[in-house]
Amino acid sequence: MTVYGVTGGQGFIGSYVRRELLARGHEVVVFDRHPHTEMAPGETFYLGDIRDETSVVELAAHVDGIIHLAAVLGTQETIGNPRPSADTNIRGSLNVFEAANQYGLPVVYAGVGNAFMRDLGTGSYTISKTAAEDYARMFNAYRGGRITIVRPVNAYGPGQSIAAPYGTSKVRKIMPSLSCRALVGSPIEVYGDGTQISDCVYVADVARTFVQALEHTAVHGPTERPVEVGPLTSVTVNDIARLVAEEATHYTGREPVAIKHLPMRPGEIPNAVVTSDTSTLQQIGMTAADFVPLDEGIHHTVRYYAEQWLPGYLAA
Rank of each mutant, 00 (worst) to 15 (best):
D277Y: 03
G48R: 04
F12C: 14
P176N: 08
T233F: 03
K260E: 13
I197S: 04
N154Q: 04
I188Q: 01
K260V: 10
L59H: 06
D290M: 04
T44M: 05
E98C: 05
H261G: 09
G121Y: 14
A70P: 02
M264N: 05
G194R: 02
P41T: 07
S198M: 12
F45H: 06
T148L: 14
E133R: 06
H62G: 01
H300P: 00
K170A: 14
H300S: 05
G92M: 02
A70N: 03
M264T: 10
V229K: 02
F12D: 10
V302W: 14
T122S: 15
S93R: 05
P231N: 08
D205P: 05
T88F: 04
I259M: 00
P187I: 13
E98D: 11
M117S: 06
I127S: 07
V203P: 00
A110N: 13
G74W: 08
A23H: 07
E307Q: 10
S161D: 08
Q308S: 15
M175E: 04
G157H: 02
H34W: 07
D32F: 07
P106R: 15
A100T: 11
S124T: 11
S279H: 13
N238I: 15
Y125D: 14
S93N: 06
P231C: 12
G144D: 00
H299E: 08
I127H: 07
P256D: 11
V237G: 04
S124Q: 13
T195W: 13
T236K: 05
D119I: 15
P270F: 03
G5K: 01
A115D: 07
H250N: 14
L314S: 10
P311D: 01
Q196F: 02
V201M: 04
N101T: 09
G113F: 11
T168A: 08
M286T: 09
V274S: 12
Q160G: 11
Q283R: 06
H250E: 15
Q160M: 05
P82E: 12
H62N: 03
P293C: 02
A245Y: 03
G159Y: 07
E246N: 15
V56P: 00
T7V: 08
A99P: 11
Y202N: 02
G8K: 09
V107A: 05
A272P: 01
G167I: 15
I284R: 12
R19P: 00
V63G: 07
G144W: 04
S93M: 06
S15Q: 11
P84L: 06
Y125Q: 15
M117E: 01
F210A: 00
V28W: 09
F12H: 14
A316Q: 12
D64T: 07
G194W: 01
T233S: 08
L183M: 13
G123Q: 02
Q212G: 10
E98Q: 13
I188D: 01
P106G: 12
Q160W: 08
H299C: 00
E246T: 14
G167L: 14
R254C: 01
A86W: 08
Q196L: 04
T37F: 13
I188A: 07
E228G: 09
L243N: 02
R225N: 01
Y4V: 14
A40N: 10
V96Y: 04
L21Q: 08
A182P: 06
A86V: 12
V96D: 01
P266R: 10
Q10A: 12
Q283C: 05
S55N: 00
Y313N: 04
E255V: 03
C180P: 01
P158T: 10
A132C: 08
Y251G: 11
D32R: 00
G5Q: 02
P158N: 03
